[in-house]
Every structure is written in structure tokens, then in C-alpha cells.
Simulated assay, not measured.
Amino acid sequence: MQLKNRVSLFSNYTVITIVGLLFLLPFLYTLYTSFVSMQDVNKLAGISHWSFKNYKIFFTNDAYNVPKWLFNTVIMTGIVILGNLIINPMAGFALAKLDFAGSKVIYWIVVATMMVPYHMILIPVYVNMAQLGWLNTFAGLTVPFLYQCMYIFMLRQFFITVPNEFIEAARLDGLTKMGAFWRIVYPLAKSSLITMSILAFAGTWNSYLIPSTLTNIPDMYVLVVGLNSVKDMMFENTPLIMAGVVLTTLPILIFFFFFQRQYIEGISSSGVKG
């Protein structure tokens, strides 16, 4: 029986490893291509042929301003994640633990909103941003996305599982409802918050549709939008384009690598309940 379990475990790990390598191959090809010259594309070049030349060109070419695009992306992503870490948990807690008039209606509005593709409301959002004078500004790129209905729903499902006794005990110790939330309940949601942060980071960092719609000034481009403009100018320079792809992909992989355990725990603890 023990031998059978070992064989089964070995088979499972073998399959997982093979599938993982299949998913990893495209990124490895992109990474390799970003280090070689155009003449070595789709060839197996030795390490002596590898260099950071494409990255240097990508950052120093006067035809485009990659450092500025990277700065814009970092600022936009940081503001959106910070807003989501504040607003979504508060909304999820209110819907899970506070009994107020219209809470059920608001909950179902949140659920219904999750089913509406963002493409359908893109034009109204653009009109609103134009009326506010927020086109080509960080406010336009961040304020509409400081909360996400999907994350509110996810956090509500977690907060439902938090025993009411924790909150009642905090209230007996003199904390207000908001005090109980921030000091007792919020820390308990660490795994769910990290899961939300990873998803928000990936979605915001790689966002193209929204930034390309709300900005038309090169100095306000984010990295993905700017990379698309570089692709139009340097379409035939594959290594240079691949260097840009690595720059947009690597931060997400690093972010996920450091928080993968909490991500899995957050997914497990935020299932649909109640």
C-alpha cells in the first residue's frame, strides 16, 4: 500500500512538473530572446552572445520614455492597490456584519455588477472622466478603480466566517465598530487581502484598455500602452519587444512568488458561503 502511494505521488508530481514546464516555456523563450541580438532569434545562441543591450536600448532610446512609463505604472498600480486595501474590506465587512437598511439590496447590486463586462461601461466612464477634466491624469487612471465589486464580494464571504463573538468582545473592551474592524477583523483577513492584492496588481499592472482610452499623451502612458507604441515603431526588432514584455511580466511573477502561500490560503478561505 505504501509503495502504491509513493508511485501515485511520483506520478502526480511528474504530471505537475511537465504541465508547469509547458506553461513556463513561453516565458523562457521570451526571456532568452530579450538577451540576444536579432540575428540569433530562433537560434540556440551561447551565453557569450547574451547581453543586456536590448534593455539598455529600451530604457535610453530618445524615441520613447520608458522610465516615465514605468513610473506611471508604479504610481497607478500602487494607488489602486492601496484604495482596494481600504475600501473593499470596509464594504465587505459592512455587508457581512452590519445590519442596516438596504444592505441586502446593495449586496445584490454588487453581485449583479460583477456580471457586467467593463467594456459595456467604458464609454460612460470616459464621458465622466472628460467632464471632470481627469483625462490624462492619475486621478482618471485610479479613482474609478479604487474599489472592485468582485473583491468586495470575496471579502464579504470571508468576513461572514468571522465569529460575531470576536466583535462583541472588542465592543465590550471599549472599541467602536470601526475600531473592532481595523484592530480585530482586518488582521484576520490577511490571506484574503494578499490574494486580492495579487489579483489587483496583475490586473492593474497589465491593464491596457483603460489607460489607452483615458490617456493620449505619451508622458501619461503606462508601460503596457507605451510598449504597444514601441511595437508599432520597432515591429521588426523582436528582441527589443521581448525585453519590454519581460519588464511587464517579471514584477507580477516576483509578487506572486513571494506571496503564493497566502494567495492559496486566501482563495481557500474566501469560498462562496452563506
Rank of each mutant, 00 (worst) to 15 (best):
residue 4 K to Y: 06
residue 10 F to K: 02
residue 13 Y to F: 12
residue 20 G to N: 09
residue 20 G to F: 08
residue 21 L to N: 01
residue 23 F to Y: 14
residue 30 T to A: 13
residue 30 T to L: 14
residue 51 S to D: 11
residue 53 K to M: 14
residue 54 N to T: 12
residue 56 K to C: 09
residue 60 T to Y: 14
residue 60 T to H: 13
residue 68 K to E: 12
residue 76 M to Q: 08
residue 77 T to V: 04
residue 77 T to Q: 06
residue 87 I to K: 04
residue 91 A to M: 12
residue 91 A to F: 03
residue 97 K to R: 14
residue 97 K to P: 08
residue 99 D to Y: 11
residue 101 A to F: 13
residue 109 I to Y: 02
residue 109 I to G: 12
residue 110 V to M: 12
residue 129 M to A: 12
residue 129 M to R: 04
residue 130 A to P: 00
residue 135 L to G: 01
residue 139 A to S: 07
residue 140 G to S: 05
residue 143 V to W: 03
residue 144 P to V: 04
residue 144 P to K: 05
residue 145 F to K: 03
residue 152 I to S: 00
residue 154 M to A: 02
residue 167 I to F: 03
residue 168 E to C: 07
residue 177 K to R: 09
residue 179 G to E: 02
residue 180 A to N: 06
residue 182 W to D: 01
residue 185 V to P: 06
residue 188 L to Y: 07
residue 189 A to S: 14
residue 190 K to W: 12
residue 193 L to S: 08
residue 202 A to Y: 04
residue 205 W to F: 13
residue 205 W to C: 05
residue 216 N to T: 08
residue 218 P to I: 09
residue 220 M to G: 00
residue 231 K to R: 14
residue 233 M to L: 15
residue 237 N to T: 09
residue 253 L to I: 13
residue 254 I to K: 04
residue 255 F to R: 03
residue 257 F to C: 07
residue 259 F to N: 11
residue 259 F to S: 01
residue 261 R to I: 04
residue 263 Y to Q: 01
residue 265 E to P: 02
residue 269 S to I: 07
residue 270 S to P: 02
residue 270 S to F: 04
